[in-house]
Simulated scan of single mutants.
Amino acid sequence: MKIKVFQKGFNYSQDGRGNRLILHLQGCNMHCPWCSNPEGMSPEGALFVEKEWLKESCCPKGAVKEESLDRSVCKDCRERSCIQGRQKGIRLSYQEFEVRDLIRECEGCRPMFFDGGGVTLTGGEITMQFAAVKELLAGLKEAGIHTAIESNGTHPHMEEYLPLVDEWIMDIKHMDAKKHKEWLGVSNVHTIENIRMAAEKHPDVLLRIPLIPGFNDSKEDAEAFTEFFKGCAAGRSNVRVEILIYHEFGKGKWEQCGYTYTMKLGRISPETQQYFEKRFREEGIQVVRT
């Protein structure tokens, strides 16, 4: 079975415990306007442009002019000869691997998995490649490698991953189903169900809220999150909650993918983060910063 990966690299403690190999998997069912990895959103991948290497010779059909890519030409192109070679100006966002080869590569990284580290699967959204991810996780577990996943939790059959995952990381972006769908394109119903399921059945759960200005950063939002976490995280030693602060680090990549970044300038103040964390702690919810 094959799996699409758009980025690989090591990270310490931010995407799971210890030093980890992070595999970013292609494709997402949400359309978060703040996404820091827009090249991973489309299941078909994105044509990613690096302007410093972009030459007219990159495209035999003349789509490159004046150091710019005319993507209307790309839309009707079937050959995609621009991404067949090794030139850097235009590339497809992902590479495709056989799952067995990826497992073998991960096994070769064992010396780097210190302080309880291992492999984290993130995205995009990992459940867009559900069967391949299940095969990969099973192979990693069989090899004795610590596994972690990061997911938006929208897949209805995520419980199938439970025995294959050592650290379960999941986002919850908004408690209001209507606003969630308006902004992100999908409902939060399965996310809420899967969070409750994981909190009840998994020994190591990290729940994350990406705090976004104008979307979920009000005191009313804080109360809604607090009420939800009271029922699934309060008093549980196996469940931690973390606030992730909005940033614009991925803004430049939207342009490189030919996308429009629509988020308005804004920031989350330290006081807002502290308010959310304080409300959670007041209700016996374990709060962390990784």
Rank of each mutant, 00 (worst) to 15 (best):
R20V: 06
H31Y: 09
A233Q: 11
D166E: 09
C74H: 03
C232E: 09
T191V: 14
C32I: 01
A224L: 00
S237T: 08
I103N: 04
Y94M: 10
I103W: 00
G40R: 02
I268G: 07
K141W: 01
L21P: 08
E227L: 12
E79F: 11
F114V: 14
Q286N: 13
W254Q: 10
C106M: 13
Q7N: 15
K219R: 15
G118H: 02
S72F: 13
V64Y: 06
Y161D: 07
G139M: 02
G252S: 13
E182K: 13
C106L: 13
E271I: 07
D70M: 04
E271P: 01
T262P: 00
E44P: 03
R104G: 05
Y261R: 08
G108M: 12
L136S: 01
H180N: 08
K264F: 01
I195K: 06
I126W: 00
P270M: 08
L121Q: 03
A143N: 01
C257M: 11
C58M: 07
E39P: 07
G45F: 07
P33M: 09
G153W: 02
S269Y: 13
P43I: 09
N194K: 12
C77A: 10
R236Q: 13
K2V: 10
I169D: 00
G124V: 02
R91S: 08
E39S: 10
Q26F: 00
F229I: 08
G185P: 11
L136R: 05
G252W: 03
L206N: 01
V288M: 12
L47S: 02
S218M: 01
F276S: 10
E52G: 04
G118E: 00
S42K: 12
Q26G: 07
T127Q: 05
T120R: 03
V119Y: 01
R86P: 07
E67N: 15
E135R: 12
M112Y: 15
F114M: 07
N194Q: 02
L164F: 08
D171Y: 00
E98W: 06
T191L: 07
I83H: 03
S237M: 03
I212M: 11
K253H: 10
F276I: 11
C106A: 15
V189E: 14
P43S: 07
C32A: 05
Y246I: 08
E200D: 14
D217G: 05
E167M: 12
K4V: 00
N152D: 08
Q129T: 07
V133E: 05
D217P: 06
K253D: 00
W254V: 00
E52V: 12
F10I: 08
V205D: 02
E277P: 06
T191D: 05
H157I: 03
S42M: 01
H247S: 08
E98T: 00
P210D: 09
P213E: 06
K219E: 14
L206C: 12
D115M: 04
A131S: 13
T290F: 06
K8F: 10
D101G: 03
E167T: 08
G117V: 01
R279C: 14
